[in-house]
Design a protein around this nucleic acid. Structure first.
Lengths: 201, 201
DNA sequence: TTGTTTTGGTACCGTACAGTACGAATAGCA
DNA sequence: TGCTATTCGTACTGTACGGTACCAAAACAA
């Protein structure tokens, strides 16, 4: 992932903690919106100077890409583990509904979906990473639906790819609505309705 | 709506055409995103100077509010006429699906939904207008669903308000996906699936 | 002609942004 | 004690933005 720094034995010791900066940036991006948080603001919040940030991450694009990587590792991975938990279709969908509607981490939305929604405002590296993650998420949804179909739990006229897209977009919609202050109960009601197409013949 | 100008008999005759400026701004906002189009760019595209624009609209907020008003009159009104066409539930839903999936005007998305998605970046007047339109749209959807229920065409356990919210968000999602380049066929497939909850018992 | 009124645009204001030049600070090594 | 390597942050660059001061242009009225 990142080039292993051979820990230089000479030179002024670094006081900047890259991971703490990433945490600060991730929280800020996540709580509001990547497009509304400037590099200046992140430096101020993290208590470092701008050159320090640029030495570490190269550019704003490099920073946001690193933040997205961290978010994928720390948050998205857990979300996609649900798809491989081996439970049945119904239980897995219920788990997804629970996560999207009630998980406190999604109270201000999902950083990945925020980045995807404002993709054109991101730098090329971050944008490419967004596309990668989007593709792998769709693949995971599709694999999950294929498994459910093979197990005879679902037999729609829909292709697994179309179903995956639908499932992914419904979850994205639900989480995005949480960021705009909609009540978890309403979101649960609507998402349950949207996903009922998988459990009703 | 706007204060009637008493057409002054004195002073230099105005060469600026406010409606043409609004058209230019609406097209620009609509094609890309209100947050990505500057006042400078609009002035350049419209061939006028910045003070002229500010004399007419007061501020960027005033301009975007005027653009939204125009959009509501010219585009949204037609969309909501569908709800009052008096057809049955099934036909009306089909008309909405047609509009969202295939109407060429929605090829680059819906300006209203773009503004709503980036509401926090708008000025106070425009933001208030967005909320107004959102509320009246929900009311129209709810009235439509109540009428359908009274006619016995729909008998879900859902409240008309929850159904209205669901319906509106599904249409918004479909149109927003068109702006991100998704194929009309896919969008139609997914929106049809999402709205099938209204026609299946 | 001489004012008065209205609209025109040039040139500017202050602010915020991403990104950088550069010298001071701090370490190990000779 | 230098010398070199590395990180530090102050202070700056250039650009873009929303918004405005100001005066010239163009009409009618006296």
């Amino acid at each position: 992932m990142s080039e292993a720094d051979p820990k230089p034995t000479r030179g002024r010791p670094k006081t900047m903690n890259a991971e703490q900066v990433l945490d600060v940036a991730m929280t800020a991006y996540w709580q509001s919106d990547p497009a509304d948080v400037s590099v200046n603001a992140i430096c101020q919040m993290a208590g470092i100077s701008k050159p320090s940030l640029y030495r570490e991450f190269g550019s704003e694009d490099g920073l946001s890409r690193a933040v997205l990587d961290r978010y994928a590792e720390q948050v998205l991975s857990e979300m996609f583990d649900v798809l491989h938990s081996g439970q049945g279709l119904h239980d897995t969908l219920a788990a997804l509904i629970n996560f999207a509607s009630d998980d406190p981490r999604m109270e201000t939305g999902c950083l990945f979906y925020k980045m995807r929604a404002g993709k054109h405002r991101l730098g090329p590296e971050t944008r490419a990473r967004v596309d990668e993650i989007d593709a792998s998420a769709q693949a995971a949804y599709a694999a999950f639906l294929r498994a459910a179909r093979d197990a005879g739990e679902w037999s729609n006229g829909l292709s697994a790819e179309a179903g995956a897209k639908y499932l992914g977009e419904q979850i994205a919609l639900a989480i995005t609505q949480r960021a705009s202050g909609e009540s978890p109960a309403r979101i649960r009601e609507m998402l349950t309705l949207a996903l009922s197409v998988f459990t009703r013949a």
